[in-house]
Design a protein around this nucleic acid. Sequence first.
DNA 1: ATTAAATAGGACAAAATTGTCCGATATAAA
DNA 2: TTTATATCGGACAATTTTGTCCTATTTAAT
Lengths: 144, 144
Amino acid sequence: MFSKACEYGIRASTYIASQSLRNRRVSLKEIAEEIDSPIAFTAKILQQLSRNRIVDSVKGSAGGFQIENKQIEKIKLSEIVYAIDGNEVSMGCGLGLKKCNSNKPCPVHDKFVKIRDELKMMLENTSLYEMTEGLEVGLTYLKR
Amino acid sequence: MFSKACEYGIRASTYIASQSLRNRRVSLKEIAEEIDSPIAFTAKILQQLSRNRIVDSVKGSAGGFQIENKQIEKIKLSEIVYAIDGNEVSMGCGLGLKKCNSNKPCPVHDKFVKIRDELKMMLENTSLYEMTEGLEVGLTYLKR
DNA sequence: ATTAAATAGGACAAAATTGTCCGATATAAA
DNA sequence: TTTATATCGGACAATTTTGTCCTATTTAAT
């Protein structure tokens, strides 16, 4: 469904958010350990998220990544996904047709639109804050 | 959502089914033209579908691909997808966790299960026959 | 039998994705 | 001011996916 880069990006953002809520800025090293991802690849993805203003990065000693607390509730899963994978996943044709639409649909157009619309709604309605809730109390996990 | 190979596979199967209903066996060349796909790559995918008994292939002069008419209603979209992409798309974790399940879920486990279950139901309930219906009357398309 | 036309399958090539390494740059602390 | 510790970003490498080409094999028709 999503690329590896996107999966790591979501997990990283969620971890950063969970720590930002405790006023902790976290390093790349810590992030990669906590989400079990390849560190250098994760660095690239964090750069992308930083350029897209989804996470804040601070260079230099005691630097790292963080997200403003008031942003954590505002940032939706969709923003992370669109920043890394684009919106093909919730907008594109299931059979790969470039110009598939309701006027010139592929044979599964309507059925896919239904699924994709639900996916789209889910992504656009799920906030980073929601995703951190279970983490704190050990109900949800970001590795393995 | 699906790989290119899978998209071509679905489109090819649908075209073969539509022509089999008219008792026409079709060649690789015709298929690739009608679904606008790279011919040699499409050949590989058809071999896979043939080995998985989703399409029948006939070698030699006047050979080509076909699907038994009584099978066209029985073959579901899910069989094609699983044969080419596996069932990761309807079973795997949205964040790429290997051991994600309801006991040790990722932060979006429940939300993804809901989407994936619907996708799974749709794939398993959509027959090749259904997909050919609009084609005949020019209501649906397999290229561009 | 020979030939023409078709799929099967192996080897190879190109492109995209995933992943690594290292020097440049920025910043806090000594 | 120097040093230690971060991220940034460019170049490179490995792997996977996508795509091509060519020969072998099969089959129908001549």
